[in-house]
């Protein structure tokens, strides 16, 4: 059963960052200012709804473990464009580029 309520401001922040490029979890945290306890449940919900994919990437620095990057799916981009449209997003997000 899916619920169609409006996304939270935190979700909008995550969507606006992911619209620009795929991101790693920690980088998303830094750019959105959200803590991991808030960010990861949002990412999980977006992936459950088919708006997000995750990809394991080989580490750029030798000896480090692979990292998971997150990218919006075409459905996710359409959803982000819908919720981030100027006439629907909250006033606080109007300055964020999409």
């Amino acid at each position: 059963m899916t619920r169609n309520r409006a996304p939270s401001q935190s979700t909008c922040l995550v969507l606006s960052e992911l619209c620009q490029q795929p991101q790693y979890g920690y980088a998303l945290m830094k750019k959105t200012g959200l803590k991991s306890g808030t960010l990861y449940p949002i990412l999980m919900r977006l992936k459950d709804r088919g708006f997000l994919t995750s990809n394991w990437e080989e580490p750029q620095i030798l000896g480090r473990p692979p990292r998971q990057s997150y990218e919006l799916t075409p459905n996710g981009r359409a959803y982000a464009n819908e919720v981030l449209a100027p006439d629907t997003q909250p006033a606080i997000l109007r300055g964020i580029k999409t």
Binding site: S36, Y40, P66, R67
Partner: peptide, 15 residues
């Protein structure tokens, strides 16, 4: 959700 846990554990190494 175990895949997410693995992602969190690996991400910790980057911090």
């Amino acid at each position: 959700r175990k895949d997410w846990l693995a992602a969190m554990q690996n991400e910790l190494e980057q911090i």
